[in-house]
């Protein structure tokens, strides 16, 4: 997951802070990925597993076009197109062929594994060198990478704020919020689901293209677990946003916190790696983080009202009554 991070060895505070900037840059890229995931996970209420494949697709397409001499921005634009198509396919599998949401995503994701290999001439890994190619973003210059990442994230947040405030965007949100009501208002919910999935995967592919340039290679497995990392960013961002600004956030503010969530997530990764956690255990660690964050709201509600508690209360009342 990036050679820079692996250099943070030795429990030396200097080393830790030294690797923070690179961690921030990677965090922003995952944050951009999480913006895409936010569309399906929060707005459409659709757990879309396509993204693991699309992230790699974005990387593969971008790197291959860069090697063919393309301008990096144009290459990323094509990557977005590839992501849009992938999302459409998941959407069509679900809405036109009646395949359950999660399975639709898994099918597209798995097929993308082969397609991504095919894009990279059947190689699992393709490098792109910053010294031979013009890149939009590279780990060789961390400050400018952070700046570029922040600018891209800001533009995307502005675009999403606008789009989801339009008639069409609000129809997508309505579809996720209440499909029955949406149909009654004349919204074609199947079309909106396909549209939302396409936009989401377009953004994910874009972030894959950015990540491939940053790390200097595209790998067929670079998207593995992307959905969990994206969820981590979304959830951490929401928790932080609510804690710091007490739910006064508007939509753009919430999106900004999703990107911040990506940064925080990645800095945590930097810290655990600095503490000599074996990098192979990272996916386990990430899953545990997400599971804990998803479980907290549920457990909190449980602690207020649960059968166990009701049972205990009943026993206590009975004892009190017996005493009287």
């Amino acid at each position: 997951m990036g050679t820079i991070i692996l250099q943070a060895s030795g429990l030396n505070i200097g080393n830790l802070f030294g690797s923070f900037p690179a961690g921030i840059a990677q965090g922003i890229i995952w944050g951009i990925m999480a913006l895409g995931l936010y569309i399906t996970f929060r707005l459409l209420d659709f757990a879309d597993l396509t993204v693991d494949g699309t992230f790699s697709t974005g990387g593969a397409v971008t790197v291959m076009l860069l090697l063919a001499g393309w301008n990096p921005w144009l290459a990323m634009l094509v990557a977005v197109g590839a992501g849009l198509i992938s999302g459409c396919i998941t959407g069509l599998l679900h809405t036109r062929l009646g395949i359950p949401a999660i399975l639709s995503g898994i099918l597209t994701q798995l097929s993308l594994y082969s397609i991504n290999l095919a894009i990279m001439d059947m190689k699992a890994n393709t490098a792109v060198s910053a010294s031979k190619t013009t890149l939009a973003i590279t780990s060789r210059s961390i400050p400018s990478a952070i700046l570029t990442g922040v600018i891209i994230a800001a533009v995307l947040i502005a675009a999403m704020y606008w789009y989801f405030g339009t008639e069409q965007g609000s129809a997508i949100r309505a579809t996720g919020s209440n499909p029955e009501m949406s149909k009654a208002q004349g919204i074609d919910i199947n079309r909106m689901k396909v549209l939302g999935l396409a936009l989401s995967n377009g953004l994910v592919a874009l972030s894959g293209g950015i990540m491939a340039q940053f790390q200097g290679f595209a790998d067929v497995g670079m998207g593995r677990g992307a959905i969990v990392i994206g969820l981590a960013a979304v959830i951490i961002g929401e928790v932080l946003g609510d804690a710091l600004l007490a739910k006064k956030l508007n939509f753009a503010g919430r999106l900004a916190f999703v990107v911040i969530g990506g940064i925080v997530y990645y800095l945590v990764i930097v810290i655990v790696l600095w503490m000599k956690l074996n990098p192979n255990l990272l996916k386990l660690f990430t899953s545990i983080i997400v599971a804990v964050f998803l479980a907290v709201p549920y457990l909190r509600a449980e602690s207020k009202a649960s059968f166990k508690k009701a049972g205990r209360n009943a026993v206590r009342r009975q004892k009190e009554a017996d005493h009287d």
Binding site: T166, E167, Q185
Partner: peptide, 11 residues
Amino acid sequence: RRGKKRGLAWQ
């Protein structure tokens, strides 16, 4: 906007 086309105008 029931039954109308939903475009890119502000909601």
